[in-house]
Amino acid sequence: MLLKSVLLSLAISLATAQSEVGRPCGFKIAPCPFDMKCIADNPYCPELNKCPGHCEFKNKYASCGGFTPRPHNCDKKHECQDDPRLPPNCGMACDIPGICVPKDAHFCGGFLGLACPDGLYCYDALDGCDPENGGADCGGICL
């Protein structure tokens, strides 16, 4: 019974994490996460206190890779990576498109607790470093 409860709570938490992008907002319901904004569903009703909307990331990055007929490539200043803003998944290895990440993206977090410039947010660098498993200086990138 305990195992069923643990598995159920894990499934609910994963479903909740994956549903943040595109989840409903507006009508004074729960606000979007800190790195997202509420976008009105109807352009003729931009007043989000009176109209429905959905959550989208504040910072947009070009899509790349993935299983598409004509996969998009990044320019010379960017590299295609799994999207670190999404919950852990198999990413481009499972044909989920990645994003074009700037090659000169700022480092954040880590042992020094470095902050991102205004308007950017710190995400796990997806480098295999695990702070829960011996990685005392795991950092991230600012996106």
Rank of each mutant, 00 (worst) to 15 (best):
F27K: 12
G110D: 12
C25A: 12
N59M: 01
P52T: 10
L10F: 11
Y61N: 05
D130M: 03
K37F: 02
C129W: 05
Q18K: 13
V101L: 10
D75M: 01
M1K: 09
G134R: 05
I12E: 05
G53P: 05
C32T: 13
C122N: 02
R85M: 06
G140P: 11
R85I: 03
P131E: 10
L8W: 00
N42H: 01
K60F: 01
G109E: 04
A40Y: 00
P43Y: 02
G113L: 03
L14V: 15
P31L: 12
E56N: 13
G113H: 08
H106P: 09
L7Y: 09
A62F: 02
G98F: 00
C80T: 03
K4M: 06
N133T: 07
L143C: 04
P31M: 07
C45F: 03
A15C: 10
S63I: 05
L7P: 09
M92V: 07
D137V: 03
S9C: 12
C25K: 00
D35Y: 06
M1D: 13
P131Y: 02
D137N: 15
H72T: 10
S9G: 06
S5C: 11
V6P: 00
C64R: 01
A17S: 15
Y121H: 15
S13K: 08
L2E: 13
P69C: 12
G66D: 10
S19N: 14
C38T: 10
I96T: 15
S5E: 10
R23F: 02
G110E: 11
Y44D: 11
C108D: 09
C45N: 04
V6I: 14
T16I: 07
F111Q: 14
G134W: 00
D137I: 03
L8Y: 01
Y121K: 00
I96L: 06
A15F: 07
P88E: 07
D127M: 02
K103E: 12
V6R: 08
A40D: 05
P46C: 03
C80M: 02
C90I: 04
C80I: 05
Y123H: 14
D41P: 00
F107E: 15
T68K: 12
G139M: 02
G53T: 14
V6T: 15
E20D: 09
